[in-house]
Design a protein around this nucleic acid. Structure first.
Lengths: 114, 114
DNA sequence: GATATATGTTATTTAAAAGCACCATTTTGG
DNA sequence: CCAAAATGGTGCTTTTAAATAACATATATC
């Protein structure tokens, strides 16, 4: 999408690497299924140029296009566990007893005992 | 098909649902960590409007922004297994012995030579 | 090797994403 | 209850992703 965010323009190295890997995985999945870029793109509803960009891990491409590629190859279920609250042990540990709807009023800075 | 892909404008229902769920997961993770939209957005490198869109599961938002949100909360590792070729049982089954670099020349349609 | 197919590259066009600023509403926590 | 913070929404501007097209190169199958 236009007007690229800083996040999309120069993402953290971890994010960049994750996307490149994801793109290569998608490519491998496509070749295994013996689909051309164009065929897959057609199913997803994008042009082959967008599909090519995805396989390179382009950060600024719409997430729906990436997800569409997974969907078209029966791999979308892999997303189910991503950020699943049940597996977010760190989040669970930090969680208050109440479940606030917003981050609420700044509560002073909780850690500075000095 | 102009500037926003069909995939991003009206994604398959599965994709749409997956994104809405992912967005809600991200929101839950943020609240557990007691971060405001603005704080998280700042870390990710986007405005709070983009972060709000992500938590709603907007399809046309850059994947790097979504990944950035995961990254900022230590959840990016959840992406490692997505589309992992090792877990792609269907792909493995379809795979030829050789690993072609492209989908190659169309081999007559399917292998329907009775 | 021949050749049909796939993929890469470049350029142009255009609609929408992200930025920004402002105000309304909701929610928190004292 | 009340003040402060968070979140939601609108309108406007800027920037660029995605579509399209045309051509070049690479690769697979015969």
């Amino acid at each position: 999408m236009p007007q690229t965010s800083k996040a999309a323009k120069s993402p953290p190295a971890d994010v960049e690497q994750t996307l490149i890997r994801l793109g290569s995985y998608i490519r491998k999945a496509r070749l295994r299924r013996n689909k051309s870029l164009e065929e897959l793109a057609e199913t997803v509803g994008v042009t082959r140029h967008v599909m090519a960009a995805i396989e390179k891990g382009k950060p600024s491409t719409a997430i729906a296009s990436y997800m569409g590629a997974l969907w078209a190859m029966g791999l979308l279920s892999d997303m189910k566990s991503v950020a699943d609250p049940d597996n977010d042990t760190e989040g669970k540990a930090l969680e208050n007893v109440r479940a606030p709807k917003t981050a609420g009023k700044r509560k002073k800075e909780l850690d500075n005992d000095f």
